[in-house]
């Protein structure tokens, strides 16, 4: 691989076949239907940095996360983490990939097996990936991990239901760290938590990033979280990456009209009394996406060609934008 980025995603595309069952199609003469959840998304993540993916519900954020960690096969395109592909034919490569990558999930109530003790939950990656041998070594490592995320080693004997949402998310972080990964995909890790607990979990994740040189892909729709966590930000709209820029640049000078709309819609403390033109339009149906640039029906800058051609991604310095008329 030419550049030094840890994670390289190129032309990632995922389409789902959502056709009705065969018999219904034959009887009612329905065509096959496809849903394009992710379309030709490419970006790199530098080692030790955080890349945030933002977008509305249904923009394909979670689908990208699933493909990235190997839970879902991309329809086209590829994912490389440190040069290794999750769909590699060699078992050695697959094991290497799995040791490097981990995931933190959105719902801390569903992300742990309710019948397992915390010790078993945290030890599962260690044992499955064959990182340590011997019961004592595993037990010691589990205790270390729990302390690393701000819990006590004594918590290992308890069940998930004995913990609060924030504590559960800490256990999930401990499980993610158990395999010494370099790269962690965080799928809205704080959206199910109280604001005060969110801050604690985010601080913990930043401290861990600094201490362990972790690389994060952070998926969220909360712009405050993005501003706090991200180095680079990618904005998704209906499966396409419409803008990708460094954090400060994106917040101070957004170039894509959708990014501007998104930033305008976020509540601001300093904007007290400002007149806000709220956008009432909904995200279009992802099955029948608008032609050309998918954003044109909601865009204030749209001209006639926006409905016909889809804009190519233009690179301007470190940032990229897919728009005919960027500001």
């Amino acid at each position: 691989m030419s550049n030094g980025a840890l994670v390289q995603i190129s032309d990632l595309t995922k389409t789902f076949d959502i056709s009705s069952p065969w018999l219904e199609r034959v009887i009612e003469r329905k065509p096959r239907q496809y849903l394009t959840a992710v379309e030709e998304v490419s970006f790199d993540i530098e080692r030790g940095t955080t890349y945030a993916l933002v977008g509305e519900s249904g923009s394909g954020k979670s689908t990208i996360a699933r493909m990235l960690v190997g839970l879902m096969k991309p329809t086209r395109g590829s994912v490389h983490v440190d040069g290794v592909n999750p769909d590699s034919a060699s078992a050695e490569d697959v094991l290497k990939f799995r040791r490097q990558i981990q995931m933190i999930f959105q719902d801390p109530y569903a992300s742990m097996n309710p019948r397992w003790r915390v010790s078993e939950i945290v030890a599962e990656p260690i044992v499955t990936l064959g990182l340590l041998s011997g019961r004592d070594a595993v037990v010691r490592r589990v205790g270390e991990l729990l302390e690393q995320v701000g819990l006590s080693a004594r918590d290992a004997g308890r069940f998930p239901h004995e913990f609060s949402g924030g504590q559960r998310q800490r256990i999930c972080i401990a499980r993610a760290l158990a395999s010494n990964p370099e790269f962690i995909v965080c799928d809205e890790p704080t959206s199910a938590l109280d604001v005060s607990v969110q801050a604690q979990v985010l601080n913990l994740m930043r401290d861990l990033q600094r201490d362990l040189k972790l690389t994060y892909l952070f998926i969220t729709h909360d712009l405050a979280v993005v501003r706090y966590m991200a180095d680079q930000i990618g904005v998704l709209y209906l499966g396409r990456l419409v803008e990708s820029a460094a954090r400060d640049r994106l917040f101070s000078a957004p170039s894509h009209p959708y990014t501007q709309m998104l930033l305008d819609a976020a509540p601001r403390l300093d904007g007290f009394g400002r007149q806000h033109q709220s956008d009432s339009s909904e995200i279009p149906d992802p099955i029948n996406r608008p032609s050309g640039c998918h954003f044109h029906p909601r865009c204030s800058r749209a001209k006639s060609n926006c409905a016909v051609e889809s804009p190519q991604t233009q690179t301007a310095g470190a940032s990229r934008v897919a728009c005919f008329y960027p500001s």
Binding site: I101, M103, E124
Partner: peptide, 11 residues
Amino acid sequence: KEYVHAARLIG
């Protein structure tokens, strides 16, 4: 549920 995803993830 996500705990099953977490298990699949590590192979």
